[in-house]
Amino acid sequence: MRNISDLIEQYLKQMLDGSNEGAVEIQRNDLADRFSCVPSQINYVISTRFTMEKGYMVESKRGGGGYIRIQRIDLPALKTIRHHIEHTIGNCVDQSAAEGLIYQLLEAALITKREANLLRSAVSRETIALNLPMRDEMRARLLRSMLISLLVK
């Protein structure tokens, strides 16, 4: 059985898919009532599953008419993907950011689930058994090279 966080995430993604502008505005309390949970559960889902690394921008306004706006950030066209990869990864990248980028590419259907699993395995801290900051530098080089090979035709 799926947990409440998975259900909330799935619901929000369905709302985003149905949106013409690729964005939704929600009221935290209304969503909490819909799923019979506390509002902090909504905050948890949004802060962990709708991050910039995963391809989302979140904006919130507090107060009486407050809302949370979630917007999907589309990856650039394939012809500019190399620049996007180099800019996103840079000279070093931690495991969380690397996994976020892999997730974003998978969600955009630019890589397969199998490719995503291979990428995650290759850039994991267990595979790259080096001390920091060398590990993050090696991860960036590996990830950049593999993604360019996969995506740039």
Rank of each mutant, 00 (worst) to 15 (best):
Q41I: 00
V123C: 08
A32R: 05
S40F: 14
K13H: 06
R114F: 05
I85F: 08
E21Q: 09
D94A: 10
L130T: 04
M134T: 12
G22R: 11
I128C: 09
I73H: 08
L130S: 07
K153W: 07
Q71L: 08
M15E: 06
D74P: 01
N131Y: 14
H84T: 03
I81P: 03
A108L: 09
V38L: 12
S124A: 14
S47P: 01
R69H: 03
N117Q: 14
L12Q: 11
E25N: 10
R82L: 01
N117G: 13
N20L: 11
G18K: 15
M1D: 04
E107M: 10
A122T: 12
L12V: 08
A97E: 05
E99L: 04
R144V: 00
F35I: 10
I111P: 10
Q14W: 03
L31G: 10
D94I: 15
K79I: 04
L106D: 05
E86Y: 14
V93E: 03
H87E: 13
K13R: 15
L130H: 11
A98H: 13
I73T: 03
Q41M: 02
R135H: 04
S149N: 08
L78C: 04
Y56H: 00
G90V: 10
G22S: 13
A98L: 07
F50R: 00
T48E: 02
F50H: 01
Y67L: 03
D94P: 04
Y44C: 00
L151A: 06
R144N: 04
A109V: 13
S60K: 13
H83Y: 14
M146I: 07
H84S: 11
R49S: 02
A129F: 12
K79T: 07
Q71R: 14
